[in-house]
């Protein structure tokens, strides 16, 4: 029982981590990014290559891949998203356009990964030593993943809620029309938010690759789960994403342990639908 709670929290921690990135992109930059999961998978493969070919530890890989994720997303925003933002007459139109464009981007990223690495399962062994925690044995890499997720989540929450810079981002999320009246550069805020989201996706990828096998086509599932967490937590809410992410991890682990591992996705969907019907704006969302 306790074992499942720990495993559930580890899994939930990574979901929370990646969902934070997506919720920032969606809440602040107003871009629904369907290629988010493929960015995560790309980071997984990058870590894999760095680790197996250059024997760079995943922790050091973070130092390379997080800025890379930031830069990559910044370029994507400037080249692809900016024209869409500029031409969109309202928020709904931007939502549809961004969904369609990132759907295309998903296929491009996936295609590149498939060409480079093929369609097989990949994994590497890092810090696979058993650690005793609260009477149950957990793999060291999983524990590290959880600690990293919580740490990064905490840093992000503190930045968003305790710094001036974070306040600017939150202002844009809350009132995109009024923010410019207070001298806020919304375009810059959106650009930064989208890039931070990309950096978070890269972080998520590094963390996930430490303890999970991954395939070039697994991006869709990650996007899906991150989206569900974002919606459950409430669009743009970082604390919501953390709570919903942990919840989703626990649900998955318990379903896998007590019902059937093959039904986890179905269970996640059921939770998603039920919560949507009861609270259409998410756990922390405002009506």
């Amino acid at each position: 029982m306790l074992e499942h709670v720990v495993n559930g929290l580890v899994l939930g921690g990574t979901y929370a981590l990646v969902a934070m990135g997506l919720t920032i992109q969606y809440g602040i930059a107003r871009i629904m990014n369907l290629s988010f999961g493929d960015t995560i998978i790309a980071a997984c493969f990058a870590t894999y290559v760095l680790f197996s070919a250059f024997s760079i530890s995943p922790l050091l890989a973070l130092l390379i891949l997080v800025p890379a994720g930031y830069g990559f997303s910044l370029v994507i925003y400037k080249v692809i998203m900016k024209p869409l933002v500029a031409r969109a007459p309202d928020e709904g139109a931007l939502e549809v356009d961004s969904i369609l464009v990132t759907f295309g981007l998903l296929f491009v990223l996936q295609g590149v990964l498939l060409t480079l690495f093929g369609g097989g399962y990949n994994s590497y062994s890092f810090l696979n030593t058993p650690v005793n925690l609260l009477g149950t044995v957990v793999a060291g890499n999983r524990l590290l993943a959880l600690v990293l997720s919580l740490l990064i989540g905490a840093v992000l929450v503190l930045t968003l809620y305790r710094t001036r810079w974070g306040m600017v981002l939150r202002a844009v999320a809350l009132a995109p029309q009024s923010a410019p009246l207070f001298g806020i550069d919304t375009d810059r805020a959106a650009r930064t938010a989208f890039a931070i989201g990309g950096a978070m996706a890269a972080t998520g990828g590094v963390v996930v690759s430490m303890f999970q096998t991954f395939t070039a086509t697994a991006g869709v599932v990650f996007t899906m789960k991150a989206l569900i967490v974002v919606i459950l937590g409430g669009k743009g809410s970082v604390p919501g994403a953390i709570v919903a992410g942990l919840l989703l991890g626990l649900v998955e682990t318990f379903v896998a342990a007590y019902i059937d591992p093959g039904l986890t996705l179905a269970a996640v969907y059921t939770v998603f639908l039920l919560l949507l019907l009861v609270r259409p704006n998410g756990i922390f969302g405002k009506a």
Binding site: V101, F103, G104, L105, V108, G111
Partner: peptide, 11 residues
């Protein structure tokens, strides 16, 4: 490279 071309075309 089918899916890459498909994606680019879509964008």
């Amino acid at each position: 490279h089918f899916s890459i071309i498909l994606g680019l075309l879509f964008i």
